[in-house]
Computed example of a mutant assay.
Amino acid sequence: MRTLLFATFTLLGLVGSALAEPLSTVSSVQVTVGPDLAKKAAEDYGVRDIERLVAELQADVQRELRRTGVLAGGRVELTLTDARPNRPTFKQLGDRPGLSYQSFGTGGLAIEGKAISIDGDITPIRYSWYEADIRDSRIGGTWADAEHGIDRFAFRLGRGKVYARR
């Protein structure tokens, strides 16, 4: 009797865990930098800072799509078209000796791209978020508003709410 009961619970556990796992995850999330932002990065912001934002955008989008199962088996191709820091970047501080890290302003970012479903349907994506109130910029780091925009974008994309308006 115990053997039969043990076998039944084991079988139910295997079936239950197979049903609980998503069928597929997003196959890829590719993030590139737009030409205007790449030029700004090389001349003004510093390439390392923009590469860090790209890595954060990719990781956050992958995490949210994996968590929600949106676009399962599909592909997301994004381009970071603009980013604006709240405080001077490391390169800016090095290039301009009189500049202070205590300086601050409003920041944000813009993202464009497309979501390609497993069926091949292409959905354009366009998102931008810039802080409007400078009082909120005082407490953050160099890329605080851009990072907040990335978090908002990933959360909304994972729930199917960030597509280009026609």
Rank of each mutant, 00 (worst) to 15 (best):
R2M: 12
R2N: 14
T3V: 11
T3K: 05
L4D: 15
F6V: 11
A7L: 15
L14K: 01
L14H: 02
G16F: 02
S17L: 12
S17M: 13
A18S: 09
A18E: 03
A18T: 09
L19P: 02
L19H: 01
P22D: 00
P22V: 04
P22F: 00
L23I: 12
V26C: 12
V26L: 14
V29E: 03
V31Y: 03
G34Y: 03
G34E: 06
D36F: 03
A38N: 07
A38G: 09
A38E: 09
K39P: 14
K39Y: 08
K39I: 11
K40V: 10
A41S: 13
A42M: 03
A42D: 10
A42I: 03
D44E: 09
G46L: 07
V47D: 12
V47E: 12
R48S: 13
I50D: 13
E51D: 14
E51S: 08
E51Q: 11
R52E: 08
V54S: 11
L57K: 06
A59I: 05
Q62M: 02
R63M: 13
E64P: 11
E64K: 02
R66K: 14
R67Q: 04
T68F: 13
V70N: 12
L71E: 05
L71M: 09
L71K: 00
L71T: 03
L71I: 11
R75E: 10
V76E: 08
L78M: 08
T79F: 07
T79P: 14
L80F: 04
T81H: 05
D82I: 00
D82E: 06
A83D: 09
A83H: 05
A83T: 12
P85G: 08
N86C: 11
P88H: 00
P88N: 02
T89S: 14
T89Y: 10
Q92T: 08
Q92M: 15
G94M: 09
G98N: 07
G98W: 07
G98P: 09
Y101K: 02
Y101A: 07
L109N: 04
A110L: 00
I111G: 11
E112M: 06
K114D: 07
K114M: 06
I116N: 03
S117Y: 09
I118H: 05
D119E: 12
G120S: 10
D121V: 09
D121N: 06
T123S: 12
T123M: 07
P124Q: 00
P124M: 00
P124I: 01
R126Q: 08
R126S: 15
R126E: 11
Y127K: 00
S128C: 09
W129T: 00
Y130E: 03
Y130K: 01
A132M: 01
D133I: 01
D133W: 00
I134M: 04
I139N: 01
I139T: 04
G140M: 02
G140W: 01
W143T: 10
A146S: 04
H148S: 08
I150Q: 10
I150D: 13
D151N: 08
D151L: 10
F153I: 04
F153M: 02
F153R: 01
A154M: 07
F155D: 13
L157I: 13
L157V: 14
L157A: 15
G158R: 02
K161Q: 12
Y163V: 15
A164V: 11
A164H: 10
R166C: 08
